[in-house]
Structure formats: structure tokens, C-alpha cells
Computed example of a mutant assay.
Amino acid sequence: MHAGRLTSNPFHIAFCLAIALLLAGCAGKSTPGGSYSGSTYTVKRGDTLSRISRITGTSVKDLASMNGISPPYTIEVGQRLKVNGSEASASSGKTSTKTAKVTPSSAVPQSSWPPVGQRCWRWPTSGKVIMGYSTSDGGNKGIDIAGSRGQPIYAAGAGKVVYVGNQLRGYGNLIMIKHSEDYITAYAHNDTMLVNNGQNVKAGQKIATMGSSDADSVRLHFQLRYRATAIDPLRYLPPQGSAPKC
């Protein structure tokens, strides 16, 4: 499923792009191996409740409640967590994994990623990057930026909003912007969303405020996608606090 080859129907575009993004997040369901049995999950190094939520299909709120985890939601390597092992979750996982093979996150190999400077990108917000991009199976397909609730979130480039909603488990309040036939950006875990489907936005325009929807702390999960493939945003963003030089 390539973003640049979709029908011009905006509702179909929004649906297909949302599903493509969901598949990338859920592709990791096959990676935990024996660590995820369907009813329990064993914490690995680098795991957060947000990532475990994406892998198991269990909301962050349910994970915390089922396992007696309180803020700041600290978990330890080797800890066994109860998860929702329902048939619906299992079925969803199977479907996602099967479809993800058609459009894996590595559909465009790193050697074929676009050159730096091909397009101008702006930082969607300011703050410390608390989780970087990973090419590993089930790894983070974007960057997570910490901040304070209500902090402004900006469009990384000019484009058209193709998805505004919270139907994708693990992403909370999500916005996706299509910038061209090749590029899409995604902004997850928002508090308030200030744009609508089909709206044209300018680079640097405020589109949301930072929150913790479906996340274990206040943050922005930001993805940059090239031909439906998630690529490393840090490779293309200017230094924080600097304006793009292209």
C-alpha cells in the first residue's frame, strides 16, 4: 500500500493511511516470541507501557490497572504483565502481521531513503527526544519527544490533513498530514487536536497540543513516512531551535 497511489477520495485516503500506520505499529506482534503468550507479556529492555500497548493490543490504561502500576508507570526487565488475551486481539494481530508482509516498514530500504535537504522539515515541537527511531522489528518507527501538557504541536511541513481521530489503539489522539505523493507525517498522543480532515495547513502551523492520550507520559510520537515507509526523522530535521536551511 503506497500512499502516493491511493484514490483521490479523501475518506478512502484517510482510512488507508491510518491502516498503513497501524500495521507498522502492530508488525511487532510477531517479534516478542515466547515473551508474549497472548495473556501475559514479559518486559524486555527498552519497553514502555506505550510500546507494550501497541504490541499486545491492550490499552495503556488497562495495562496499568490490570497490573497495579501507578504513575510514573515504571516497569522492570523480566517483569510479567497481564494483557488482554482476547480472541479479538489475537485475530487482529494475525491480520496485521499477515498484511504487514505486503507493506513492511522496510519496503524502501535505508539505502534508497531520500537525500537530506530534498524537502524542508520543521521540528513539530521542542523537547528532549526520549525514544529514538529503530529499524529493528517491533522497534519505534519514529521519535518520541517529551514535553508538558498543552505544549504546542506544529505541522512539520505544508500539506493536507488526511486523518484526525483516535481509533488506532496505541496512538491516542492522532493526526496525519499528507505533504506530497511521497511524504506523510504523523503526530500521536495529542491532548487537543486543532485541525480537521481535509484541511490544508502551512509549515509551522499549530495543529494540536501535547498530551498523553494512550501513552504512559506526556509526549509527542512523531513519524516521517516516505512512500509509506517510516524513516528516521532525526536524519531530516534541522538542529532543534534552528530554522530549516533549504
Rank of each mutant, 00 (worst) to 15 (best):
V43D: 05
K44V: 01
R45Y: 00
G46N: 04
G46T: 09
G46C: 06
D47Q: 06
T48M: 04
T48A: 04
L49A: 02
S50K: 07
S53F: 00
S53H: 03
I55S: 01
I55G: 01
I55W: 09
I55M: 03
T56A: 00
G57C: 03
S59D: 04
K61G: 01
D62R: 09
L63A: 05
S65H: 03
M66I: 02
I69H: 07
I69A: 02
S70F: 03
P72C: 10
T74K: 06
I75T: 05
R80S: 14
R80D: 07
V83T: 12
N84F: 08
S86V: 12
S89M: 13
S89T: 12
A90L: 13
S96P: 02
T97R: 10
K98C: 03
A100M: 06
K101L: 12
K101T: 11
K101S: 13
V102W: 10
T103G: 02
P104W: 07
P104M: 11
S105A: 11
P109S: 06
Q110R: 14
Q110P: 00
S111D: 08
S111I: 00
S112I: 10
W113N: 14
P115S: 14
P115L: 12
G117F: 06
R122W: 13
W123N: 12
T125F: 09
G127Q: 07
K128E: 15
K128V: 15
I130G: 12
I130A: 13
I130Q: 09
M131I: 00
G132A: 10
S134Y: 04
S134M: 11
G138F: 03
G138A: 12
G139R: 11
G139A: 12
N140Y: 12
I143V: 14
D144L: 12
D144G: 10
A146Y: 01
A146T: 00
A146C: 06
G147L: 07
S148M: 10
S148A: 14
R149P: 05
R149M: 10
G150F: 07
Y154Q: 09
K160C: 05
K160D: 01
V162A: 13
Y163T: 11
Y163L: 14
Y163M: 13
G165L: 11
N166S: 15
Q167G: 15
L168I: 15
L168D: 00
L168C: 09
R169V: 13
G170V: 07
G170A: 01
Y171T: 01
N173C: 03
N173K: 15
L174T: 12
M176W: 03
